[in-house]
Design a protein around this nucleic acid. Structure first.
Lengths: 245, 245
DNA sequence: AACCGACAAATTGTGTACATTTTTGTGATC
DNA sequence: GATCACAAAAATGTACACAATTTGTCGGTT
């Protein structure tokens, strides 16, 4: 994470208008996005302190906008703010993770239901194409590619729901479990992987028939299975509490 | 909304420890909660500006914590922040309202599903009791009491899901549509009211059988009908855009 | 008389300073 | 040698000050 400008903070105000911003995105949003990415990408260890000063230097800004961003990230659940004791990266307990996956399941179930109401044939065709791409990755045992296309399919279904509020909530929650979700996928047992592929077949099939209720149930159970895998991974790999000093 | 103290802002630091806070709630959370309530309760007109200075005086604080709270409220979707043009109370379009109701439907569907997994017999009995209370209000055509108990039942179902993340998301979204939801209920047609009661019978019945999938569908459709009623109410009562100057 | 432009007032965004709280390091005592 | 206490240092929470952008008004021009 580099400073916004190679020079001092004051030069930003001069430099920014020279290079037209891609959007009319304010500095606050810029900081918020960068800080969120910084945390989601795992640059700060789980439960680690978030030193304000250090980040201010990194971003080349003062504490005020940084603290505003921290408050927002706290409301998103990425960090927790202890009174007079600063911000810490929120460590997800086994229970938190399970709850988050269930909520993701609920949101995807909703997305599937709404998608069946609104999705176009072209979008279904697009998802079918992605599905076969994913199948190819599965056959080649390419976990990274599989994960990427898998995420893309789920995202496309959410998009097809035509519900911006849902989409925004989905992206938010997805960010909170992104790291663990990715790691858990790698640790996934072989049999579970095949099972997941079959579930995706069923998803696609229900989507083709635009069977909202069915798709809703399938997606929830799909996420339930992912939840089980993720929780198993977490308990097996990270016995952080019981670890001796 | 009164100032925190009858005197100046400086006295707060002295006065606060004298009266022990009910929780270990920090000042920031206090401000956040008060400001959120202030907006949700409708003290600022829809789409109206949120003057920082004025609110600072009201709350007896400086701009910094207020602005932090505004940023959080913006991320919650209650207000929108225009660059260099301050905060405005977010005006819900017809579409926003419909999307929010669908998301609420998705969350309640999830809550119902999870509740069937976790709810105790005692909790079901409690909800049954509330149900009959609500029925009494329905018979007496007491809309205010009906609305209150209705909200309570839905809240109890969400509680029974044993999912704190879901509960927090539910409360957040509920706050965003609280005002309109309440008004829309009052404008509800008689026949819709009866229909809603029948739907609640079905909800209770599915909950007793702990039929998760069924309850999930029932709850979503229940919210869909509420959505229809709310959107109809909004379009009928608030043609704000077409109104001449 | 209406419209355009410029100036002034107000409001927002950001940086900085100060007070309070927490934490750490040092020293003394048991 | 270990533990507790006190003090110093660092970090947080809040207030305040300044810069920049927006908005409203006044005057000039067509």
């Amino acid at each position: 994470m580099k400073p916004l400008t190679p020079h001092d903070a004051a030069s930003r105000a001069v430099a920014a208008p020279a290079v037209p911003d891609r959007e009319d995105t304010s500095l606050h949003d810029e900081i918020l996005t960068r800080l969120r990415d910084h945390i989601v990408e795992g640059n700060i260890p789980d439960g680690g302190r978030v030193p304000e000063r250090q980040l201010c230097e990194m971003l080349g800004i003062s504490r005020t906008p940084l603290r505003e961003a921290l408050k927002v990230l706290a409301s998103e659940g990425l960090v927790e703010l202890l009174p007079n004791r600063g911000a810490r990266v929120r460590q997800l307990s086994e229970r938190d993770l399970a709850e988050l996956f269930d909520v993701m399941g609920g949101l995807e179930a909703l997305a599937g239901r709404l998608a069946c109401e609104n999705i176009t044939d072209a979008e279904i065709a697009e998802i079918e194409r992605l599905h076969y791409d994913m199948y190819a990755f599965y056959l080649h045992r390419d976990m990274h590619g599989y994960f990427r296309v898998n995420q893309l399919i789920h995202h496309k279904i959410v998009e097809a729901s035509r519900n911006a509020v849902l989409q925004s909530a989905y992206v938010n929650f997805a960010g909170r479990i992104r790291r663990i979700r990715y790691s858990a996928n790698f640790a996934r047992k072989r049999e579970r992987w095949g099972e997941a592929m079959r579930e995706h077949e069923a998803i696609l099939e229900a989507l083709r028939r635009r069977a909202g209720n069915e798709l809703s149930d399938i997606l929830f159970n799909h996420l339930r299975n992912k939840r089980t895998a993720a929780v198993e991974y977490l308990t097996a790999a990270v016995p952080a509490q019981s670890e001796p000093a």
